[in-house]
Computed example of a mutant assay.
Amino acid sequence: MIVLLPPSETKRDGGDGQALSLDTLSSPALGPLRAELVGELVELAADRAASRRALGVSAKQDAEIDRNAALRTAPTMPAIDRYTGVLYDALDIGSLRSAAAARSRSRLAVASALFGLVRADDRIPAYRLSATSRLPGRPTLAARWRPALEPVLAAIAEDELVVDLRSGSYAALARVPGAVTVEVVAEHVDGRRTVVSHFNKAHKGRLARVLSTSRSEPADAAAVAALARRAGMRVQRRDDHLTVLVAA
């Protein structure tokens, strides 16, 4: 099983690894587009105004542009440690030990607007690029990633069950055939259901922790739902789609 996570805008600084080596990242078929995007971001960083427009940041966030300028030389760390925020706090991979930690790191993957797909232990630098960013004079990132990334994800899905926890903009970068998809909704006392925003990430992080550390290897959506329920989550299933219900 592979648990496919969305990335986060926030990322830890620093790292103890050597500079980025695209050749050492998993899914080497994505290498050419990764190299193109790294080059474009480094070049774009020389023009702060253009970078702000493309990345959707303000002048107060120029440190994000500095990160992009240093993509080729900055230290790296495992991707699963690089990303921060609500989902990654709930996942709390740093608290896992021994076999549970090894299982989790082998099962977790992260969607990335810059790298397409990274596995937990792929070493990457801090960067700023979102799925909705638009680099000057270039097609959308979805248009660029889809031809390269969809075959990679399809090949993974042929061998392993994929539980897709990506947000909409990252899911648009590439489809995953046969994946188990997940949404989180708030259920009100009157029966109404509304989309959860902030807490959506926390519940997906919690689910990712349950699935990635489980000793069992679920083969389908029903088995994924069963694991979530055993962990105390309220889950409804419709075919390959799971709805996690939380009290409003």
Rank of each mutant, 00 (worst) to 15 (best):
D159Q: 15
V196K: 04
V210P: 03
V3N: 12
V246C: 05
L96H: 09
A142L: 09
V57N: 08
R128P: 02
A102S: 12
S216E: 14
M1V: 13
S95T: 14
A46W: 04
D121Y: 01
R144S: 14
A231D: 13
A155I: 12
A247Q: 14
D81V: 09
E160T: 14
M233L: 15
A100C: 03
L165Y: 04
A19Q: 10
L153P: 02
R230C: 12
Q18M: 11
R52E: 15
D16V: 03
A247C: 11
G116Q: 07
T73P: 04
V180A: 11
A120V: 10
S21Y: 01
R134K: 15
M77S: 15
R206M: 06
W145C: 12
L30M: 14
A208C: 01
L165C: 08
L37P: 03
G137V: 13
S214C: 07
V110E: 11
L25D: 01
A208R: 06
G232H: 12
D16G: 14
R234Q: 14
A226I: 03
D164G: 05
R175P: 12
A46M: 07
R138M: 12
M1D: 06
A50Q: 14
A171I: 04
I2Q: 09
W145G: 13
T76Q: 08
V184A: 10
R103T: 10
S112G: 10
P139Q: 13
R67K: 10
D220A: 10
R138F: 05
D239T: 11
T243E: 05
N200D: 10
D81G: 02
L129R: 04
R107A: 00
Q61L: 15
A171Q: 15
Y88W: 08
S214L: 09
E187S: 13
A101W: 09
A221T: 01
A208S: 05
R192N: 10
A222P: 03
V224C: 03
S98R: 15
V235S: 06
V38I: 14
A142C: 09
P75S: 09
H198M: 07
D159E: 15
A221W: 04
S133F: 01
D66I: 05
E40F: 02
A101Q: 13
G116M: 10
T140M: 00
P147W: 11
A111K: 00
S212L: 02
R138A: 13
A99N: 11
L41V: 07
V3C: 08
A172H: 11
I80S: 06
T76E: 07
Q236E: 15
R128F: 04
R34E: 13
E158T: 15
T213G: 04
S212P: 01
G56P: 07
A46E: 15
G39K: 12
E158N: 14
L87K: 03
L173Q: 13
Y170T: 02
G14S: 10
R144P: 06
A131H: 01
R209V: 00
S167M: 00
T73V: 08
E43N: 13
L129N: 03
R193P: 02
D47V: 05
L5Q: 06
A154W: 06
E150N: 09
S95C: 07
P136I: 13
P139I: 14
L135E: 01
L117M: 10
L87Y: 00
A126I: 05
D122E: 04
L173T: 03
R215M: 06
E187R: 15
L207Y: 06
I80M: 05
G168C: 00
M1Y: 07
V184C: 08
V163W: 05
S112T: 04
L44V: 03
L161A: 13
I65S: 02
